[in-house]
Design a binder for these strands. Structure first.
Lengths: 216, 216
DNA sequence: TTGCAGACCGACCGATCGGTCGGGTATAAA
DNA sequence: TTTATACCCGACCGATCGGTCGGTCTGCAA
């Protein structure tokens, strides 16, 4: 059982650490707390991860990977830019909802990078690489739509920012968002609503031609 | 000069604390660091603020007030919903740009509320009250546009979330955003660009232009 | 001149931080 | 049985945390 327990412990640590980091941020979480939540002694954490920073980036990488797995097939698929963008939004939101702590962790990571000068930390690389890849593909998708004349001539990086805000921020907004919406953000109804609202906004807001939906 | 110095010190503390909290979050900042940056001894902080939490919420309240002062005249003015929304976006972005740390602090505050169960902390009230007021007015503006038939029948709370994401998140995204955009987010060119892109998206995406299927 | 209050500070407090160390236990190969 | 390895732990380390305490300095009012 040693091997199974080992894998189980490592996963368990990543699991509880993800929740804690998402809730209180890197500095707000103590390793003692992580260990307790994982049902281990604090020293045991260092058997699986050599430092708090490494644990943090391992958690971040795992989150990125899960999102990447969801988005990759969609981004790689063929189809019109409109259809692919819709599918990407659905997939991203599905990924964020499936693991509710992801959104917060992801958004926090964009700020907390400054916290420990992530540029110089080699542990940060894998997660950043996945993120950069996703962003690049998303930007490429938008660019393709613009060049094909399907989308308006928007600034695709700005559009990417708007998309991140509309998805990651929304599902990271916690109590504030729930109060504003007036219902649990993760309820299937509100998730569907979010997808529909966003896709509709983009459908109208990105369309290169005056809307004439009835024709087709 | 005692009184002037006192006021000066208090402001100085708020100023440096705002920058630090924005950069590293509540838990990531030590009071020693704040005191040093303000040119004071650590004990002196407690002469002006009775605890770290109170200092944090004082900082947050100040940020909210500055944004409120910028937005209030715009939100209260008369005019068509389209024009008022455009003006609100300009004003909000101006406010976020004028005090570059505001965006991050604001966005962080939505998460870090969970950190210390802000519901029960009386210090949090003023800031939350201002925020709630602004959100309410923004939602009302959108609702008015929808009811007037100028905007599509969108979910106004969801639209508010999208707006926050497109403004606050964007200017809080730091290095990530700059890398994505490829230029300083706060440069006058990129600020103007952000406003234009967002207003264009909304102009196309919110317009209630009856598709008039009979026409085409 | 005295008294008082606001501003400020050094020294200190208990608690907690990330991390180390030495050792204990179980399994599996030799 | 011995050896190696993975896993786990209690005790401990120096540093730092938020916060307190007693006291100094300054300007002002009486």
């Amino acid at each position: 059982m040693s091997e199974a327990a080992s894998i189980g412990s490592r996963e368990k640590i990543l699991e509880v650490a993800e929740a804690l980091f998402a809730r209180r941020g890197f500095s707000g979480v103590g390793l003692r707390e992580v260990a307790d939540a994982a049902g281990l002694g604090k020293s045991s954490l260092f058997h699986h991860f050599k430092s708090k920073v490494q644990l943090y980036f391992a958690v971040l990488e795992r989150v990125m990977q899960r999102i990447d797995e969801r988005l990759q097939p969609v981004l790689g698929a063929a189809g019109s830019p409109v259809h692919r963008l819709d599918a990407a939004i659905d997939a991203l939101i599905d990924a964020l909802v499936e693991q509710p702590t992801s959104a917060r962790l992801l958004l926090r990571s964009l700020f907390e990078d400054d916290d420990f000068a992530s540029d110089s930390l080699p542990e940060a690389d894998p997660a950043e690489r996945i993120l950069a890849g996703l962003i690049g593909q998303l930007d490429g998708l938008l660019r393709a739509g613009v060049e094909a004349g399907v989308f308006r001539k928007v600034s695709t990086p700005h559009m990417v920012q708007t998309l991140i805000g509309a998805t990651v921020y929304h599902f990271a907004s916690g109590d504030f968002g729930e109060t504003l919406i007036g219902a649990p953000l993760l309820s299937s109804e509100q998730v569907r609503r979010r997808k529909d609202e966003l896709k509709a906004l983009l459908h109208h807001g990105l369309a290169a031609t005056a809307p004439a939906p009835s024709g087709g």
